[in-house]
């Protein structure tokens, strides 16, 4: 965070000029945005359905933004984001095939399966920090009009699951399965992403800033096909790392946003 502050300070001081109008002299915007996308695969925070059982849900990223106009058409954006969603426990033993791959009875590393309450999914949160630059279209004066935004996102992901209700088979009879603790119940991962946004900003009554648009994102750690592959994972940590990266990656991949804020100074 310290480095970001230093970078931001250096960036603004080297680029900002006093000859920038902003909007009616105000160049800083504080706003809240919500990036949302229908959860097509996988549950929402309170929805435990999995794959074909999953019902539609809405995943939201809540963002608090600070934006500062440093050139006539350029805005530097610092944003704190928070995403909370659910990760359904793998039921394993599912009959049939999906994409040609069979589901194992014991899908978790070490031949384990979840034996707890499936209706309460594991919790995946992602606290992000993003730094980006908005470029307003030719002719416009920031922060009004159409823009393109390119941002770098640092994602701090956290998975919390019920580690005490895992079972592993002792005999071939599932009745003999014994309960055991799988992993620590909480893992943290760090991930990066880049995102590109096309949007538009309006100002109402010379104070209120309205922002809307579409965002496309990419994260190098994302593997879209990971959940449908037959790969096995050596540890539960690896399992959730891959899972959470994919979930977050998909969430960043394409979503809409609406925001509201005000001209600060």
């Amino acid at each position: 965070m310290k480095y970001i502050k230093v970078f931001l300070f250096l960036f603004i001081s080297s680029h900002a000029s006093s000859q920038i109008a902003g909007y009616m002299g105000k160049r800083a915007v504080l706003s809240y945005s919500n990036y949302f996308m229908v959860g097509l695969v996988g549950p929402g925070p309170n929805n435990a359905g999995y794959m074909d059982e999953a019902s539609l849900s809405l995943n939201n990223v809540h963002c608090l933004n600070f934006e500062y106009v440093y050139k006539q058409r350029k805005v530097v954006c610092l944003s704190g984001q928070y995403l909370r969603t659910g990760v359904a426990y793998d039921r394993g033993g599912h009959d049939g095939f999906i994409n040609g791959a069979s589901y194992r009875d014991y899908p978790y590393p070490g031949g384990a399966k979840y034996g707890g309450n499936y209706s309460k999914p594991a919790l995946l949160t992602s606290t992000n920090i993003s730094l980006g630059v908005k470029s307003f279209k030719s002719g416009c004066i920031a922060p009004v009009g159409k823009y393109n935004k390119l941002e770098m996102i640092l994602l701090f992901e956290k998975i919390m699951y019920d580690n005490t209700n895992f079972m592993k088979s002792v005999t071939s009879d599932p009745v003999d399965d014994t309960l055991f603790t799988l992993g620590t119940g909480e893992y943290n991962y760090v991930n990066v992403a880049i995102a590109y946004t096309i949007g538009r900003e309006h100002i109402i009554n010379d104070k209120i800033v309205i922002d809307y648009g579409i965002r496309f994102g990419l994260t190098p750690a994302m593997n879209i096909v990971s959940l449908t592959s037959d790969d096995s994972y050596s540890t539960i940590e690896m399992y959730y790392k891959r899972y959470s990266n994919s979930r977050i990656g998909r969430q960043q991949l394409f979503n809409f946003h609406v925001g509201i804020g005000f001209l600060a100074f």
């Binding site: 009616m24 002299g25 004066i141 009004v144 309006h202 100002i203 109402i204 010379d206």
Partner: peptide, 11 residues
């Protein structure tokens, strides 16, 4: 829009 024109005039 009014905000667009306002930003032009102010500038």
């Amino acid at each position: 829009n009014t905000d667009l024109i306002t930003s032009f005039v102010y500038n």
